[in-house]
């Protein structure tokens, strides 16, 4: 920590001579200590998952949800300081609502990410505030041209609108927003303590090829979180997962918790993989002895 004692890290509004904002970098540290969260952009939807660290046995299982719904079609998960995340979610909901109020349509995921990026960036410029101690993963599925305007009555011709141009419109999107306010779109995203291991796993999926289905992605997400938890084994955790499909998919275009059955199945597979990995490790150890 070269910054300590230099004085350049005491205020948000002061750069260090080599052009860094140490407050933002410390915020990133806060994120790096948080439970792992990931997002997967599958070909027909988005999955969000988080390793929720259970700090006390007195907490009610399944309570204190960490993944939040922002609008019907969009959700957020984050790693880092949970109260900061809650405020992030509040703001995201307000943005989604204000878009709906003027345009009577769901906010595009890219627009939501852009607005939240701007919001976080504003917290890196003033001495009176500190940056957000979270990195957020925003997932959403945008309409592909068949959605209707909120509240409208009547409909167009029964044969559908004429003159539509073929091509990819809407679909699943995934963005990551960092404490600096920087945001990028991703196929797979991971943040928090186990992000390195998670990113390595995500890269293996070759998500850009668009072969992974939503249901596969749910199972992969569970595996990745279980795997990422290995380095954090002394703490208990709960897996929390949500998904969003297109209108014709299992969630009907809505962001919701992954159904209990599918989640249990995904967790069973994740645990099975975990155990088989351990066995392999043991076998290797035996070989070494020979």
């Amino acid at each position: 920590m070269t910054s300590i004692g230099t004085g350049y890290d005491l205020l948000n509004s002061i750069f260090s001579p080599d052009g860094r904002n140490f407050q933002v970098e410390y915020a990133v540290k806060a994120v790096e200590n948080g439970g792992t969260s990931i997002g997967i952009r599958a070909k027909d939807g988005v999955v969000l998952a988080v390793e929720k660290i259970i700090g006390s046995k007195l907490l009610k299982p399944g309570a204190n949800k960490r993944i939040a719904t922002v609008d019907e079609h969009a959700g957020v998960v984050y790693s880092g300081m949970v109260p900061d995340g809650r405020h992030f979610v509040d703001r995201a909901r307000d943005e989604a609502q204000s878009w709906r109020q003027t345009l009577k349509t769901p906010i595009p995921t890219s627009e939501l990410a852009s607005r939240m990026g701007s919001y976080l960036q504003a917290y890196t410029m003033y001495g009176s505030v500190r940056p957000f101690g979270i990195t957020a993963i925003v997932g959403g599925v945008d309409g592909s041209g068949d959605e209707v305007i909120d509240g409208v009555v009547g409909s167009g011709p029964s044969t559908g609108a004429g003159g539509k141009v073929d091509g990819k419109h809407g679909g699943p999107f995934l963005y990551v927003i960092e404490p600096s306010g920087q945001y990028w779109g991703y196929y797979g995203a991971a943040t928090g303590k186990g992000r390195q291991a998670a990113k390595a796993e995500l890269e293996k999926l070759d998500l850009a090829a668009g072969n992974i289905t939503l249901e596969q992605a749910v199972k992969e997400a569970a595996k990745i979180i279980y795997n990422a938890h290995k380095d954090n084994k002394d703490k208990d955790f709960e897996l929390e997962m949500s998904w969003i499909s297109g209108v014709d998919g299992p969630t009907g275009g809505r962001h919701m918790e992954v159904p209990q059955e599918l989640k249990e199945e995904a967790e069973r597979l994740a645990r099975a993989e975990d155990e088989s990995d351990d066995e392999e490790d043991e076998k290797k150890d035996e070989k070494m002895e020979e």
Binding site: T69, D71, E72, Q97, S242, T251, M256, E257, P259
Partner: peptide, 15 residues
């Protein structure tokens, strides 16, 4: 519609 979106903040479980 907005009310029901706000309701889904509390729980987004399908069942």
């Amino acid at each position: 519609h907005q009310k029901s979106i706000e309701e889904s903040y509390a729980s987004s479980s399908a069942n």
